[in-house]
Design a protein around this nucleic acid. Structure first.
Length: 265
DNA sequence: GAAAAGATTAAA
DNA sequence: TTAATCTTTTCC
């Protein structure tokens, strides 16, 4: 498999060169190389810019909260559709890492896109437990997706955390992600959030309102929200595919793709 | 002309 | 879904 990848990457430019004027193609390749080295040279500038964004987005608000408290069990005992937008701005903490939630999706009872549609299994059991627990599942055999279980026991609904902004523990986040950057690519996507928090499906059913491990802390209420259809649920019924149950902090750079489907409500 | 944003593709 | 590429658009 690796051979195929390498083969493609080597052969592609050659094909292009053969089909076009060699001189212009060589110039193009040279330009690309130049751009790449320049990008490297500009790393410092980019980092400074991102750092500013980071401060504006989340660091200040976390410090202002002084000592954010864990949300209590009652907070979660509502419809996932109501809980989802309320989780924007809240904080996820594990070890020295604190992330501020910037993008979520609601998965509800009687929702053909929700894992709960198959009923209670060993995997989905936490989903049917009382709200306030984590529901973590493996996607594509490698991505751990973090959901916050909503509503009362037996309902089977949750809020998927799709993106976050870093607040503290940037070095740990980078290390877990295996990426040395401060840019949104670090945390925009559900798999990235799970990786940054260092969680696996073993964390499924973990109580987010209890001290220790993974905690969900209170944060500022987000009023400027954009909404859109949920991502990657083509298998669901049309009415659920089109439902605007994806929520994100308006204007935040910490939002996953696709962004053009998000609009003011 | 360079950076940013969008689209595409392989991989797991 | 993610990461890496390739392509198009934006803007200094």
């Amino acid at each position: 498999m690796k051979i195929t990848k390498r083969f493609n990457r080597v052969i592609k430019p050659l094909k292009t060169i053969n089909n076009h004027d060699p001189k212009s193609q060589i110039t193009k390749v040279k330009t690309n190389l130049k751009q790449k080295s320049k990008r490297k040279a500009n790393t410092i500038t980019i980092k400074q810019k991102s750092q500013t964004q980071l401060d504006i987005c989340s660091k200040d608000s976390f410090l202002l909260e002084k000592n954010p408290k864990r949300l209590d069990l009652d907070y979660y005992q509502i419809d996932a559709l109501d809980l989802a937008p309320r989780l924007l701005g809240k904080y996820l903490r594990r070890d020295d890492v604190v992330l501020q939630i910037t993008e979520v999706e609601a998965y509800r009872s009687n929702d053909s896109a929700c894992h709960g549609r198959v009923g209670v299994t060993s995997r989905t059991a936490p989903l049917f437990g009382p709200g306030g627990h984590a529901y973590v599942y493996l996607c594509y055999g490698m991505h751990n997706m973090l959901n916050v279980v909503a509503d009362k026991e037996g309902i089977g609904s949750a809020v998927l955390i799709r993106s976050c902004a870093p607040v503290t523990g940037l070095e740990t986040i980078k290390q877990r992600r295996g990426l040395d950057t401060d840019k949104p690519v670090l945390l925009t996507g559900p798999g990235k959030v799970g990786q940054a928090l260092g969680i696996s499906k073993d964390w499924s059913n973990h109580a987010l309102f209890s001290p220790g491990g993974l905690e969900l802390l209170d944060g500022p209420e987000v009023k400027d929200i954009v909404v859109g259809p949920r991502v990657g649920i083509d298998y669901a019924l049309p009415e659920h595919v089109s439902a605007l149950w994806r929520f994100a902090v308006s204007g935040s750079p910490w939002i996953s793709a696709p962004k053009n489907t998000l609009k003011a409500p």
